[in-house]
Design a protein around this nucleic acid. Structure first.
Lengths: 192, 192
DNA sequence: CGGCTAAGGCTATTAGCCTTAGCTTTATGG
DNA sequence: CCATAAAGCTAAGGCTAATAGCCTTAGCCG
């Protein structure tokens, strides 16, 4: 029984690899333990909350990755260009790691870490919205609209809800245009 | 062992009641069997595919219910009024049955029945879009945009993603306005 | 250098679940 | 009135998570 030298982060790494390979249904302590070269109960030494906590940690990690990608996409851009880049980055992440993205809603109730990661993600969006003269409560409403569109499209594409032949990229382009148009004419905004 | 006289539909009824009460995580054959007053293996006489098929049947039922609600909301309305009514009906259903709605994506791969139900749902949306002069491929892209917004907002609200104090109803109003504005100026449409 | 402590493994066990197999009873149609 | 199919049952096998308790290693401190 040589020490493997696991850390919670490494456990999450194995969990993500498993999810990427076989989907979030396959995320089981037994499978993670096998990958880590360890017996199942040993995982409790690193993830004391068991499967529930592991799912939580996965959600936090994924949210952080996503926030990173959005932040990268937004840097150096503004206005429609920034919104478009953020939405494309969002969808690109979801398309690259569909199972990982689908694992997001599996987390139990939101905890502090998850809230922190989500707050950063929202922060990126709110920052981009300043280019439209949006701030305060209206910026929050707008950011929620942005998230709804981005999440809805990602979630539905991953779930295979769009079965018709029409090109998904075209749909995404239209969707982005709809969003930017809406942001320009946002209610309560003094339009130039 | 008096005969209970179960039918697949009744099994789904029990499953939905269970989901409404305790969430989709709690959907287990054992629990459904208890509710139905039957031993667990007996369920296989009615739902031969076991838990997987039951989840599928639940998704079909929920999609049908949702399509019904959208169709009801759309009747007798057109244009912005119709789109607004459909989105409100969508959100109202999700808010009334959050666990049921959250169970939707739990279905395995789409099958014929689910596709049929989803097609009807999409049909309602496409019909409403005719009021904007949209048909053919552009109507499909627009319908996908509508679904993305509706599903994204429903999914995120149910998941507790919107934690700030701002009123969710206001967000929903803004979101609907953004959508109708986008539909009026839809790319490729000859604007009057 | 010796020993202590804490961390990180392990096995064994319990409890709950899904699923299959095979038996028994009920209801129904000829 | 009986044969048969449908609908129930028990039993058993094989997953899973989770807890309890034990053993060993690593590292530190006197």
């Amino acid at each position: 029984m040589p020490r493997v030298g696991l850390t919670p982060d490494q456990v999450v790494d194995h969990a993500l690899a498993l999810i990427d390979d076989q989907g979030s249904e396959a995320l089981t302590l037994a499978a993670v333990a096998t990958r880590a070269g360890v017996a199942t109960p040993s995982l409790y030494k690193h993830v004391s909350g068991g499967l529930g906590e592991l799912r939580r940690l996965v959600a936090v990690r994924v949210t952080e990755e996503l926030a990173d990608r959005l932040a990268e996409a937004a840097v150096g851009r503004s206005g429609d260009d920034a919104v478009s880049a953020v939405l494309r980055a969002y969808q690109a992440y979801a398309a690259e790691h569909p199972h990982r993205y689908a694992a997001l809603p599996q987390a139990p109730q939101p905890d502090d870490d998850l809230t922190r990661a989500a707050t950063r993600l929202v922060g990126v969006i709110v920052a981009v919205l300043r280019g439209y003269g949006l701030d305060g409560s209206e910026a929050i409403h707008a950011a929620r609209t942005v998230r709804s569109l981005a999440h809805g499209f990602a979630s539905l594409t991953i779930g295979g809800a769009f079965q018709l032949a029409e090109d998904l990229t075209t749909t995404h382009d239209r969707l982005i245009t709809t969003l930017t148009t809406g942001l320009h004419t946002w209610p309560g905004t003094a339009e130039a």
